[in-house]
Design a protein around this nucleic acid. Structure first.
Lengths: 117, 117
DNA sequence: CTGGATCCATTAGGATACTG
DNA sequence: CAGTATCCTAATGGATCCAG
């Protein structure tokens, strides 16, 4: 069992491959139900570097999770949105958000515990 | 908004921080509902390197997601299991598994599409 | 059996400058 | 506006050797 064998077979390993990247979850979240321009994503993800955002978007697009629509205009306009399989990811985002909030609470309690110790 | 500001506030950013690591999701999955020894995890995660597994476990433990129980024996026995907050992660694992399987199907269809093109 | 300590190769993220 | 190209640094994963 090597990486290539596992990718495309184990759902966890495959997910982890797809979700690598410091910004991937946030991008998926922001595009959830919306269509955003490069510019708008950049602002939402401040302080992300422009080049970094481009790379992350290319990766997600390469994995088929997001769509890229180019409108030939001056100035250029490029719109990003979730693909079909990207939309299927919504339940993961929801459960992740719930857990993330619980975890943040857990951290706070833990900090207090440390302070009280 | 910088990294420190966001961590512990945005559930997505926080989750991503916690879930970094090539093996974290798989470890969480294997420990879901079970208690496993270092040795057993190592076999399940083949071909992971011993040192890598140790590091990943320390990271997850540091984030409070897993518990480490040391049984003073010869030979040594160390048992890993999910913590309370780690157990709360179960819904994420479930939705992730569902999506992962869908995504694997998607990849297969896509390969066929390419072949038929 | 578990895992610490090193060292190394690869990758990821980002700063910066430039372009249609 | 939405990139591309380049270079740089930090972080990650892993191989190897050693130890209680």
């Amino acid at each position: 069992m090597d990486t290539k064998t596992t990718f495309g077979k184990c759902p966890y390993f495959t997910s982890q491959k797809v979700l690598t990247g410091k910004w991937s979850l946030l991008i998926m979240h922001y595009l959830d139900g919306k269509t955003l321009r490069f510019n708008e994503l950049e602002k939402l993800l401040t302080p992300i570097a422009q080049a970094t955002l481009t790379k992350q978007l290319r990766i997600l697009e390469g994995h088929g999770l997001i769509k890229r629509k180019i409108c030939n205009q001056i100035p250029p306009r490029v719109e990003y949105s979730l693909s079909d399989i990207g939309n299927e990811f919504k339940p993961v985002l929801n459960s992740l958000e719930l857990w993330g909030d619980k975890y943040i609470e857990y951290i706070k309690k833990n900090e207090n515990a440390v302070l009280n110790a």
